Simulated assay, not measured.
Amino acid sequence: PNGSRDIGFSCTRRVIAFLLSHGIQTAAYDPGKVLTTSGSQVKNADLLPKEDFDLAIVLGGDGTMIQCVHYLLGAEVPIIGINLGTLGYMTEIESHELESSLSEILAGRFKVEQRMMLEAVIKSDKEPDLEQHFYAVNDFVIHRDLSDGLLTVQSYIDREFLAEFRADGLIVSSPCGSTAYNFSAGGPILNPVADNIILTPLASHAMLDRSVVLRGSDELSFYIGSFTRGDKAAFSADGSQTVYVGAGTWIYIKKSKYVFQMAKVGKRSFYEIVQKKIRP
């Protein structure tokens, strides 16, 4: 749960009480006081094999959902979200629907969407034997340092040259992330279960200044060339994990072998949520 959204963990305790009353073994990730306020019947999720979970219930917003996906990476556990913030794209259940939705889930009346994730490998010409690996639900972003000038990035698709960007940066988005930073930067919205990768430049000075929608099987390569000022760029995964890379760095991005298994009880369609988001 997101403790800043679930004040006093009131919704978390409602979920736990409902599950325990139906004889469901329950564990919680402990952000401080969840376990001490929920009784000894609740186990600490950190102490259990992640593969033992049948379902993860997230209380918060889309950011909390993404954190949970990373936490359970590789465990193939379906995740469902209870929205405690503004209208979310991933958290479809509202707090007033909590018990009715959990009843649907326990009755098996839900579906699981397989949403594509991305993975990235970073290599440097200076240290060719060193690799850094990252995974993303929404997107990877390559961005100039705010105090520096434009960065120059050569881009390739399946080793074939696409374009040289002189820009503030680039966004590489999954379909699930198309409604996040990609959309704010003018990129297209895709259905979250599509099999595509989106490349969106940020304030590009190149002729190619629009998004490119690629196949999910395509592999993107980026070579960090030079900077008009400064000597580094920021690389981030889902807006949280950030590393700094210099000139002479290769970044390889492709569809990940891992997927985000999103459980849904069919309360709202993706397009209904989009309409509510973009409505004035």
Rank of each mutant, 00 (worst) to 15 (best):
G3L: 00
D6K: 07
D6V: 06
I7A: 11
G8H: 08
V15R: 03
V15W: 09
L20N: 04
S21W: 04
T26I: 08
V34M: 03
Q41A: 13
V42C: 02
L48A: 10
P49S: 09
L59R: 01
G61W: 11
G63C: 02
G63H: 03
I66H: 07
Q67M: 11
H70E: 02
L73M: 07
L84V: 01
T86I: 02
G88F: 04
I93M: 06
L98F: 05
L102Y: 04
M116V: 10
M117A: 03
K123P: 06
D125C: 11
P128G: 08
E131S: 15
Q132A: 13
I142Y: 12
S147I: 13
L150Y: 13
L150R: 11
F161D: 02
A163V: 13
R166K: 08
G169L: 02
S174H: 01
C176I: 11
G177W: 09
S178Y: 00
A180Y: 05
S184M: 01
G186L: 00
I189M: 07
N196E: 14
P201G: 07
M207G: 11
V212I: 14
V213T: 12
D218F: 04
L220P: 12
G225C: 11
T228G: 01
G230N: 05
K232M: 09
K232E: 11
A233H: 09
F235W: 11
S236W: 10
D238L: 07
D238Y: 08
G239S: 09
S240R: 15
Y244F: 15
A247E: 15
K255G: 04
S256R: 00
V265R: 00
S269A: 07
F270L: 06
E272M: 11
Q275L: 12
K277L: 07
